[in-house]
């Protein structure tokens, strides 16, 4: 307790941290959801998920500011940019759609040849993809930090001594919209139902005519699109650079593990918890900023040892 007091503990300060932690958690939630989508479909964690989101963010950044990097210089389309007031949101939409397409493309070209390969192979392939995407972004845009600002007003509302800044609120709002859209898609549409069935019961699904291989590609597309949202939302907070998503990916992994890696709802709950916990660790433990990553490691290990199915996951029965 004296540690907390030393760090200047106040109740409103705590609430403040919880709110901004939830904002960060919302970002982890979208990326964790992207991870869960692919995990459910092919039992592998996509280590390139964060890098794909990072690349999507560069696409949005390029559309808003006109900086197409080396490619732009070479092809001379640096003049092209959306100089509109709603530029951010238009770029957001285009980047998400483009990511969907890229996700499908990646699955068809890089993942499909390895369908059914041993786990180690799939892990290596996604790590290869990690390197490729990271290298591409670095090659094209360089490794200097870029500012990509600001979809939401840079101010805050005050309520009961706690100030809620619009960035956190905005991120939470966008995340909620995405989550609801995903829930509706998977629950109430025929395609969503087929995607769920294809990932859980590939054999039965094929026997009723579902092209499961295409469902997997769609899953990658959807996952890339959802991941893109997390990247674009977090970029204004952490600055844009090719390595920006590495720790976000780790926190999303921790969230997915905590919530239950096969459970979309679990991923979201886990992400909010992780976001809040990390905000508290960062604030109230001396040197906590550096300890966030090892803290995530600790969560992953402890959860896997004590409750491998996570908070909301079902204990494994499906695989042998």
């Amino acid at each position: 307790m004296h540690l907390l007091l030393a760090a200047g503990f106040t109740f409103t300060g705590l609430i403040q941290q919880v709110v901004s932690g939830a904002g960060a958690g919302a970002v982890y939630a979208t990326l964790a959801l992207a991870l869960v989508l692919i995990y459910r479909a092919m039992d592998v964690a996509n280590f390139a998920q964060g890098e794909m989101a990072m690349f999507s963010t560069y696409i949005a950044y390029a559309l808003v500011g006109g900086d197409f990097g080396l490619l732009g210089t070479k092809l001379g389309f640096n003049g092209l940019h959306l100089g509109l007031p709603q530029a951010f949101w238009i770029a957001f939409a285009i980047a998400v759609v483009a990511s969907f397409g890229l996700g499908i493309l990646i699955e068809r070209v890089l993942i499909r040849p390895f369908e059914g390969a041993p786990l180690l192979t799939l892990v290596i392939v996604t790590l290869g993809l990690f390197s490729i995407v990271n290298g591409l972004a670095g090659f094209n845009w360089g490794y200097v930090f870029k500012t990509f600002c600001c979809p939401f007003p840079q101010s805050a509302v005050n309520a009961g001594g706690v100030s809620f800044n619009y960035t956190d609120l905005g991120i939470i709002a966008v995340t909620v919209v995405i989550l609801v859209a995903m829930a509706v898609f998977f629950r109430y549409t025929k395609l969503g139902l087929a995607m769920r069935a294809a990932s859980l019961y590939p054999e039965s699904s094929r026997l009723v005519g579902v092209r499961t291989s295409w469902m997997l590609a769609l899953g990658w597309g959807l996952s890339a699109a959802v991941g893109a949202v997390s990247g674009i939302l977090v970029a204004p907070v952490v600055f844009l650079d090719p390595n920006m998503m590495q720790s976000v990916l780790l926190f999303a992994f921790a969230a997915a593990v905590l919530g239950g890696i096969e459970s979309p709802v679990g991923a979201v709950v886990g992400a909010l918890l992780i976001g809040i916990l990390l905000a508290l660790v960062g604030t109230y433990i001396p040197g906590g900023e550096n300890l966030r990553t090892p803290f995530a490691l600790l969560i992953i290990v402890v959860v896997l040892l004590l409750r491998p199915a996570g908070l909301l996951g079902r204990p494994e029965t499906r695989r042998v």
Binding site: I124, V125, G128, L129, S131, N134, G138, Y143
Partner: peptide
């Protein structure tokens, strides 16, 4: 004049395949 990540990643996948 670039980092090797792109080459590493591409090599990795080509070799695995």
């Amino acid at each position: 004049n670039s980092k090797p990540d792109l080459a590493f990643g591409a090599l990795l996948i080509v070799v695995v395949f």
